[in-house]
Design a binder for these strands. Structure first.
Lengths: 207, 207
DNA sequence: TTCAGTAGGTTACTACCGGTAAGTTATGTG
DNA sequence: CACATAACTTACCGGTAGTAACCTACTGAA
């Protein structure tokens, strides 16, 4: 009804044209990730996003099915990026100790450089949607499994249950430390990694 | 429109009377905690809760102000209970090592015995409500500060930043392990505590 | 050149839920 | 027995997820 909000310009200038589906989808995803991450999922309406893209709501439903579906698409992209970052780091590590170190560092760097993606992942069960929750759960499993694999290299003799516990605990510690870093900007990814290594590595080298 | 849901009986039988405010509030809180914990905050409507209590929606607003206010009241109760549990455990511990052990054990026991309360606390920023989020944040700070105090006893010489990092990391580990336990019912609070102690205690005793 | 098929896009609705205004009834007390 | 008031209800509003039905610009063949 009333005029457009002051700061929600219809993304860029040239978007007042029909665009091929693939390109629109990328555009929508970009806007959605930003706005979900900064204003929150619940607070954001589909009309908000549509308006920011310079489009009408039904197109979002045409391409992503539902609001959950749109978030899901954002999460899937974030998962890919996170996996790439951590596996790349693991690829050129030397020993088992170094492997864990580099994996942790890659995680903290990810939460640093992809703040929006991290903000989406950090939210637990914001959404009452089964697909979204199982996606979040599966992202976590991915990380836990990744960590467990590293631990298996360091501690080939440890029983499986304890190994699982260690992996879960380390992932939990990572998440909290990443959130801690949001309040303490002077803590670099390197420093955070060092703190966490100081906490866990003694129990890995001795056993 | 359609009939009432099969299983949403108007709580107990005798509630078809005017009750004094204090008693109704307790009743509402009980129902709200259960239904928020099991079906989730977003999924639950105020009419749902009202119907389960055997009451009409405006009474909930009369007593709790808003949906967030109702959740907030649940959280405040959960915080009290958690604080009681952990401080009680800390009271009769002997050394610094034992102190940490008993604190962790109390936490896992809490998440075991007060499942609904824990389910509420576990949810990160489910709600776009500032009061709710700051309550959750303050509950966490409480736990972190509690842990930091314990660590200070074990490690009086450690620099403050690392100590904070350790406390955050341990709380994160606790949370993840508590969630892990939900999928692994055979893991008792004692066993979980032992795993976590195995991970962190080497770095505490040596330094 | 034209014109049908379709991908891209919109308007205008419904259903549901958080929240509220205004009114109604039970109940304890002078 | 008033009657004040605490306990409670009905009936509404605004906003948002989701949908139906319709429109329109572009493409490629006849």
């Amino acid at each position: 009804m009333e005029a457009e909000q002051a700061d929600t310009h219809p993304v860029a200038t040239a978007s007042r044209k029909r665009l091929p589906r693939a390109e629109r989808e990328r555009q929508i995803l970009e806007v959605a990730e930003e706005v979900f991450a900064t204003r929150g999922y619940q607070t954001t309406s589909m009309d908000d996003i549509a308006q920011r893209v310079g489009l009408s709501k039904p197109m979002l439903y045409e391409y992503f099915g539902s609001k959950d579906g749109l978030l899901l698409a954002c999460l899937e992209r974030a998962r890919r990026e996170l996996l790439e970052s951590t596996t790349a780091a693991a690829a050129n590590a030397v020993g088992p100790e170094q492997l864990l170190h580099d994996g942790l560092l890659a995680f903290f760097r990810f939460s640093d450089e992809h703040r929006q993606a991290w903000a989406l992942l950090r939210n637990e069960s914001t959404v009452p949607s089964l697909p979204v929750n199982s996606e979040l759960e599966s992202i976590r499993s991915q990380q836990v499994e990744f960590t467990a694999d590293m631990l298996r290299l360091s501690l080939p003799n440890m029983n499986e249950e304890r190994l699982e516990a260690f992996a879960e605990a380390i992932i939990g510690a990572c998440e909290r430390l990443a959130m801690w870093r949001e309040r303490r900007p002077e803590i670099t990814p390197e420093v955070a990694t060092e703190h966490l290594m100081a906490l866990v590595s003694p129990s890995l080298t001795t056993a």
